[in-house]
Design a protein around this nucleic acid. Structure first.
Lengths: 350, 350
DNA sequence: GTTAGCACTCAATTCTACTGAGTGCTAACC
DNA sequence: GGTTAGCACTCAGTAGAATTGAGTGCTAAC
């Protein structure tokens, strides 16, 4: 089926005030109780001074317009994806609680270590804050210039190309040569390689030596190995935090299995998050993201930028009846801190 | 409670042949059906020419001795952990099927990339082979000598220490200096750092310069950062494959949640696997590993060695009623290939 | 020691009746 | 016109009661 559904920017023939209030009450109640919501509950909890009968007749309209659904005739109403969408679109931005704010602050004040570690730990943090499964995506450094490229000899035939990029990331690639190489030759090749690649980006055309001696061959092999990587996906990193939360969010074991199976496929997760960001959304509800097995899930995302350009995202995955305002607030707060951590912290600070 | 249970090497007051056959039949049947096994089923499937009544009276004994248990009076028998243990200890080594053998061969023939990638993919492979959740643990390179230590300048105040170890692993650590450093200074510091650390192991005492100029300070900071790492755990890596399989193996959502929660804690997983290996076992059943939340799990492990000394392990986690012979065969086959891949492949080949 | 026979147990299943939350409709009301 | 009280109706869920049947333990005979 449609892998990605292009959502128009909400036709949202705005509901009148009372219908909106009723819809909101249903959503809130359903998120709370996970049960279908009846007209009398709405009449009681919403501050509308109307009877359940009135609510009932409004509900009929809301159902006809696709915002609500009825599991069966004698049950209350449940929000549809469209209903959640309306709710989310008209949600005043939530804010994170005191305690959580503090937890985030503490975390970023104390976190240390390299980018990967920070991202992995951030993922755990985000999951703990919200008790949903979190996804942290770091996009590759395809565009970063090379700061340094060294060749290190493991043994006579195995060398390692260690490359440092301007964004601080480091890669290694092993090179197996067809002949024994001396340490002197490796050192010389390393010098040449460094001179050749410094300041370039992966995939750029460089002038490799055409001689056939050991050193030149080694340099050619190293360059070839480096450039052999698919440049777009290289370095894409996904960190899943709190996958056990999946088992809390959904009740059917089968659903849990399906969601976990999706989360195992990093490429899928990256493209899911990317799709949502591409559409300029911060939430994808149920069928909106076009992944059938995640039909009962909602995904909240917030982009992370470094030096102003997008370089990743944090996300939360929960049931469609997730606590959107909390989740969105947490995701935004964490992504903001992360952004600040990487470009504030790495340049300006101290 | 007891975090680790020391198991004596099976008192195993060996059962007589008929009891053993009956126990085996119960275990086999139960693994197959997940149901309590009745005496008549045993009489039918085992090749003992005895009636169900005879089987019944033997079962009473087996139950009294702790090999079997009865969920309730009018149900069949279910193996206890002790029952599984006897079964496993007397299991003739299984072999992996044709197709799987081929799949493993193909995988290792085609796999490329760095150690981390290979381990991560191996984890996925192992999980696919067995449809259990797999765990691949790579132990750190604490004992590896440093082949190269370079300092790379990210900007005036940020430097990166990139260290290459003899086993081919690479680490990076960022260093933030309190003053601006020129490229010339970084280059000089890098040279000195390399000269200082080459051939040493992490944690070794090295003679750092005591001068107070920029270069010396930089070198001191770099060394301090490197040595600040907890040397024992540094580089311990855990790769979990097929966590969605957890949802297939257990039926209660709560059990699934608990197991996933354990798997999220890498340190726990490492120590679990390490414990089992330390006890010289290849299987830990139910309570044997002392992790309460994993009481209904069994863990199969196989060590991976590089150059003869232990450097990791592969494992499988399933329900206590897992298919032990298959799982053990798969784990052994994969660990053997992995061992060969890393020391065969990396030294001898071509 | 083995086994056929039998009474007994108890989880699981099926059936029925009932409950009650919630609806849709209508007629009266403001 | 919109609102509401009243009422008949629907139907999932629950609670008992009855039934089933797989499997046991025991005993007496072989």
């Amino acid at each position: 089926m449609a892998r990605r559904t292009i959502r128009q920017p909400s036709p949202s023939a705005d509901l009148d005030a009372r219908k909106a209030t009723i819809l909101e009450a249903v959503v809130r109640e359903h998120i709370d109780t996970a049960q279908p919501v009846g007209s009398s509950a709405v009449a009681a909890t919403s501050h509308l001074a109307v009877s359940s009968a009135t609510v009932r007749s409004e509900m009929v309209t809301l159902e006809r317009e696709g915002y609500l659904a009825q599991p069966h005739t004698s049950a209350g109403r449940v929000p549809t994806d469209k209903g959640y969408r309306y709710f989310v679109d008209h949600l005043q931005a939530g804010i994170v609680g005191e305690a959580q704010q503090q937890q985030i602050k503490d975390f970023f004040a104390n976190v240390r270590g390299e980018v990967e570690d920070v991202l992995a730990q951030t993922s755990t943090l985000l999951s703990q804050l919200t008790s949903y499964t979190s996804v942290v995506v770091g996009t590759g450094h395809a565009q970063s210039a090379i700061l340094s490229a060294q060749l290190v000899s493991l043994d006579a035939r195995h060398q390692l190309v260690v490359t440092v990029f301007a964004d601080g990331s480091v890669t290694k690639h092993s090179v197996l040569s067809a002949f024994d190489v001396s340490h002197v030759e490796v050192a010389e090749a390393s010098r040449q390689l460094n001179a050749l690649l410094i300041g370039t980006v992966l995939g750029a055309r460089v002038q490799v030596p055409s001689r056939t001696d050991h050193v030149a061959t080694l340099v050619r092999e190293a360059v070839a190995t480096l450039h052999a990587e698919p440049p777009t996906l290289e370095g894409d990193q996904v960190f899943i935090g709190g996958s056990s939360k999946v088992a809390e969010s959904f009740d059917g074991v089968e659903t849990v299995r399906q969601v976990l199976a999706i989360l195992e496929q990093e490429l899928l997760v990256v493209s899911l998050v990317q799709d949502i960001l591409d559409q300029g959304l911060s939430v994808a509800i149920g069928s909106e993201h076009g992944f059938q097995p995640l039909a009962s899930c909602a995904v909240v995302v917030a982009p992370v930028t470094i030096d102003g350009h997008p370089s990743g995202a944090v996300g939360l995955l929960g049931p469609t009846r997730m606590k959107y305002s909390e989740a969105m607030a947490a995701a935004r707060a964490v992504s903001a801190q992360l952004t600040q951590h990487f470009d504030g912290d790495d340049r300006a600070k101290s």
